[in-house]
Design a protein around this nucleic acid. Structure first.
Length: 585
DNA sequence: GCCGTTTTCGGCCCGACTGTTTTCAGTCG
């Protein structure tokens, strides 16, 4: 079992324990262990080797369960727990308003075991008469079930941004708004978003709440209080607004930006210093009070970190992924800014499955102020994408040269680069011969077929491809499509090691469905000295905008300008593109 | 179930909102 699978079992154990009504802290211990596991960078077989160092948050009994899962691929305790519970109960947790306690009551008092049975019980009026339930709860459950059938609860970052940005603009222009921001996973630039969080400071919260719930695009209002409102937007994205005083704003912003894991450590640091931190402020002593006289004043998030003896941690890094160690030692990376990117080295034209012509692409990218743009159309085996055979590719090269000659004649700095996104075939052979690859400025190698190979075969296949001296970049390493397709099985650490050994760059594919390689692995890659290329994988000119999203992911991976190849100006890039060939050829 | 330089027992982040109550439990973030 891999890291994700083990973490999922631990998380499910926690849920099952809650449903059983066990000690909630026992359940939390499993949740914490799952999180701890996800935040560790080193390979699992090292972390759980006999005699390995103790991991904080994973005690004796959970440690043994993880070792069992690594060895046997299953966990007896989990199987046992699962067997003792109807499987439909877990699904009920997805219904808004239903938690472990209520589900347990429904199960014990009505014998409800599935979402279907629950819906029927509600429609028959059996739920409303239970202790602790009522008419409203009953109809909310029915609504919740219908809603879940209609919409997903998780959304792509790009979709969430498209909904959030116009509302943020509207809030910003409201005269009663002093400061405002998005918060939560959107501000942290997570690849997948649950809901959108807005935060506003104002002297007139009632006015702001009323303004917010009347924004265009809101389907219904699910909660509306004095300082907080929740709504559903078109597309089924939930959005929450909090309104606080301006003095509270930095604390609320830090609090609601999270992540939860990050906040827990922040709170603990406050407690260690005889302080108490919450969304309203940083208070002296842990006395139960909100007396403003006891407030440690901070006007910005930066000052909060300062008071807890930390350097400022940018939102993207607030995942409890090592940021506290770095911020304590004042060794924070200076994260990449998307405006530092000079172009993209993996893109398509209408020669394969892209939309625009070479001329249209060149003109658009030049107008955006970029320095270069590589045309890397698909190779022949990607026939579904109208991949180029060697003859067509050799025909494309002079077309690109013609465009570049004209640009040079006009005195323009911008250049198209020739290239290919060459398929990594089964067994690791590339779809083009080396003599053709040698004619290209940029070679991206990617897997597009044979996704179901074993981890061992896939790992060997990709390592063989990156060992080719003409491959500059490994494209979308895992082939995942967020919310749609799982990554193929792969030992990513081994592939990163191979890229380090051969001087191959790894792509951070900025298509919002991909964001591949995952941000969680970039710290490891960086340690190994592997360079990143933030690529659009553009199929339309408007996909150039993915550079901004990709830079957000790179920031989550702690990457700096110097870690990223496509921050280089054209001349320096051309030098770098020759290095691997000189070294290995 | 995990943790500990005041602790090996007694804590474990905590506040808003809702709905059901009539002072609070459950859920959510």
């Amino acid at each position: 079992m891999n890291r994700d699978q083990i973490a999922e079992v631990l998380t499910e154990i926690a849920v099952l324990l809650e449903l059983k009504g066990e000690n909630p802290f026992k359940a939390r211990a499993y949740t914490n262990a799952a999180r701890t596991l996800q935040s560790l960078n080193r390979p699992l077989d090292e972390l759980f080797a006999p005699g390995a160092e103790h991991i904080k948050g994973i005690g004796e009994s959970i440690h043994d369960r993880i070792v069992e899962m690594l060895a046997k691929g299953k966990c007896a305790y989990y199987e046992e727990l699962k067997a003792s519970m109807p499987p439909g109960l877990l699904e009920m947790l997805n219904i808004p308003g239903l938690g472990p306690k209520k589900i347990k009551a429904l199960y014990e008092k009505l014998g409800v075991e599935t979402v279907d049975q629950l819906e029927k019980a509600c429609l028959a009026g059996k739920v409303a008469v239970l202790d602790g339930f009522g008419e409203k709860t009953q109809s909310k459950i029915v609504e919740g079930i219908k809603f879940r059938q209609q919409y997903a609860s998780r959304h792509l970052l790009s979709d969430a941004l498209a909904v959030a940005e116009p509302i943020l603009e509207n809030l910003r222009s409201h005269p009663d708004v002093i400061r405002c921001s998005t918060a939560g996973s959107l501000r942290r630039s997570k690849e997948v978003i649950g809901d959108i969080d807005f935060l506003v400071s104002s002297k007139n919260p009632a006015e702001i709440i009323a303004f917010f719930v009347n924004q265009p695009g809101i389907m219904n209002v699910t909660a509306k209080g004095e300082t907080k409102a929740s709504v559903f937007m078109g597309g089924g994205i939930q959005a929450d607004l909090r309104v606080v005083s301006d003095a509270e704003f930095p604390f609320a912003l830090a609090y609601f930006t999270g992540s939860k894991e990050h906040n827990i450590v922040m709170r603990q640091r406050a407690i260690q210093r005889g302080l108490r931190l919450n969304e309203y402020g940083l208070f002296k002593s842990d006395v139960e009070t909100r007396d403003p006289k006891l407030l440690v004043s901070c006007k910005t998030e930066e000052e909060i970190f300062q008071k807890l003896d930390l350097a400022y941690v940018p939102p993207e890094m607030r995942e409890d992924h090592g940021e506290f160690v770095a911020a304590e030692k004042n060794k924070m990376p200076r994260l990449i800014e998307w405006t530092e990117l000079k172009g993209s080295l993996h893109n398509h034209s209408n020669w394969s499955d892209g939309r625009e012509t070479l001329e249209e692409i060149a003109q658009h990218m030049q107008e955006l102020g970029l320095a270069y743009w590589a045309i890397t159309d698909h190779s022949k085996s990607s026939f579904q994408a109208n991949g180029l055979d060697p003859a067509r590719l050799r025909k494309q090269l002079p077309e690109i040269k013609k465009i570049n000659d004209k640009l040079a004649k006009d005195g323009d700095e911008f250049r198209l680069l020739t290239g290919s996104e060459v398929d990594i075939l089964n067994g690791g052979k590339l779809d083009f011969d080396n003599d053709l690859l040698a004619e290209l400025d940029v070679v991206v190698a990617s897997v597009h077929q044979g996704f179901t190979q074993s981890e061992e075969e896939m790992t060997k296949r990709i390592i063989k491809a990156v060992e080719n001296p003409y491959v500059h970049i490994l494209g979308h390493m895992t082939g995942r499509l967020l919310l749609e397709r799982e990554p193929y099985k792969l030992n990513q650490h081994a592939v990163i090691d191979a890229c380090a050994a051969t001087g191959t760059w790894i792509e951070l594919n900025s298509n919002p469905y991909r964001f591949d390689m995952d941000w969680r692995l970039w710290q490891y890659a960086k340690e190994k000295g592997v360079k990143c290329v933030i690529n659009c994988d553009a199929h339309k000119n408007e996909h150039a905008g993915f550079l901004r999203l990709g830079a957000g992911m790179a920031r989550k991976g702690w990457l700096e300008k110097s870690d990223i190849i496509n921050t280089l100006p054209l001349k320096a890039l051309l030098v770098e593109l020759k290095k691997k060939r000189q070294k290995l050829a």
